[in-house]
Amino acid sequence: MNELEITIESHEQAVVVTLKGSAGMEGNTALRDALRKVAANPLAAKVLVNMEQLAFTSSLGLGALIEAHTQLQHHGAELVLVNPNPAVMKVLKTTQLVRLFKIQNSLREALGISATD
């Protein structure tokens, strides 16, 4: 799985950016462009990056996420990473970006939807 599919959905509580595939040399430009667009004019206070189906990221993908995080902070909004797989989580831990990003375990949790809803 080498290419990156990016889907953007606006919810009442958050904008959800879903990533599927690989955020390395190939997917990085598309990821950076998409996140810059979302972060330039955030339609909600939270941007959730759904990473459940993101199989791989290199430092290029991490750089795109960091740029978006900084840009959103300037708008008073926040970037939240949702459910990274164990391999991607290990990259986040190795780089200690777990200290920079807020990370949540599920999209429902990140959207503030309780199990009984």
Partner: peptide
Amino acid sequence: SRPSGRGILL
């Protein structure tokens, strides 16, 4: 929060 400089670390 620097967007680059992690390649060698990884």
